[in-house]
């Protein structure tokens, strides 16, 4: 590669993010060489990150429209709880005989719950015109609340052995969660870049009013966005359930922050209109390298929260300062936009 090519890559936010990811990886490898680079650690990372990475994908698609989804964790846990209750309460002992069949049914049920929850969010935002923050804050409470009401607040345990596969199994030697995440990321990338829907999502995010005047079917588009986010959350919920071998209303409560952090770090504009899946994937990887490395250095969960929060703020501050931007032009609050001098 010529120096120009490299400079060209680094001008793009994703190029710089790739550099950051590499630096984090090298730093962690240097700090704890024998453990960080071990096959065991690399595999365990591949099992760990997909659950929150998929939530970040859900957050990304909503943020592209200029919205935010605060209900992703609520949806994930509710979907998992429904699946778990289906397996343990309704089917019960029958599971043992047709384990795989019932696990597939439970997963479909979870996806249906995710889709339904997304539909609720979509209706609230698109049809009733609620601001996404309030709509998903309220619906998130409702979804989490249903989870509490269905379980009485305790964990649902006693899942069939087949349920473990999706979170802990391997496909052609590759961890299933990783395969799942890669597949979903690819799918979302394709949808966002190669379909009319994807183009409309970004255009709407850039200017909702112009989208209306351009006769884009906004309501249908927003519904699909929130349903997709709900279904992605449900997949994440299934992963969390499979890995924890149980379902509970407050699992993964720190993932909401993490999902927003990854989306913002990945270059998604919280005001809508810009964001690339490759950026989100790179952000996921750098977060996982960081998190895993910190783990090895014996840093507590609380300290990790501190570091994540600081990173979020740092990225936002850097992006906001005009002389040192990682993000492209146009990444600025609507109020800051100015017309040409007249």
């Amino acid at each position: 590669m010529t120096p120009e090519r490299i400079r060209g890559l680094l001008v793009q936010p994703e190029g710089r993010l790739a550099l950051i990811t590499l630096l984090v990886f090298l730093l962690m490898a240097w700090l704890t060489p024998d453990r960080f680079l071990s096959v065991q650690n690399l595999t365990s990372m591949a099992f760990q990150f997909p659950e929150f990475a998929i939530l970040a994908l859900a957050m990304t698609i909503v943020m592209l429209t200029g919205g935010i989804d605060l209900s992703v964790i609520g949806v994930a846990n509710l979907a998992a709880i429904v699946a778990a209750l289906l397996l343990t309460q309704i089917v019960g002992p029958g599971v043992a005989e047709h384990g795989t069949f019932w696990v597939v049914v439970a997963m479909l049920a979870a996806l249906a719950v995710g889709a339904l929850a997304g539909l609720v969010n979509g209706v609230l935002v698109a049809w009733l015109g609620l601001p996404p923050i309030l709509a998903t804050l309220g619906s998130g409470l409702v979804f989490t609340g249903f989870g509490v009401a269905l379980t009485g607040g305790s964990a649902v345990m006693g899942l069939p052995a087949e349920m473990a596969w999706i979170g802990n199994g391997r496909l052609w030697g590759i961890p299933v969660p990783l395969v799942l995440f890669a597949g979903l990321a690819l799918l979302l990338w394709f949808v966002l870049t190669h379909t009319a829907f994807g183009l409309k999502v970004r255009m709407f995010g850039a200017n909702p009013l112009a989208a209306r005047f351009a006769a884009i079917d906004i309501n249908a588009m927003l519904l699909r966005v929130y349903v997709s986010a709900g279904m992605l959350s449900a997949v994440a919920g299934l992963l969390i359930m499979s890995r924890a071998n149980s379902a509970k209303f407050d699992y993964g409560s720190s993932y909401l922050l993490l999902a927003i952090l990854i989306a913002v770090l990945g270059g998604v504009n919280p005001y809508g209109g810009y964001g690339r899946i490759i950026g989100v994937v790179l952000a996921v990887l750098s977060m996982q390298f960081l998190s895993s490395g910190l783990n090895m250095l014996g840093v507590s969960n609380f300290a990790r929260e501190l570091i994540w929060g600081s990173l979020l703020i740092l990225v936002m501050v850097i992006n906001a300062s005009p002389n040192f931007r990682i993000l492209p032009r146009g990444w600025q609050p609507p109020g800051a936009r100015q017309g040409p001098p007249g």
């Binding site: 970004r202 255009m203 850039a206 200017n207 009013l209 112009a210 005047f213 209109g273 810009y274």
Partner: peptide
């Protein structure tokens, strides 16, 4: 044009 017609950043 600026608010209703165009997606300025696109």
């Amino acid at each position: 044009r600026l608010t209703e017609g165009l997606f300025l950043t696109q």
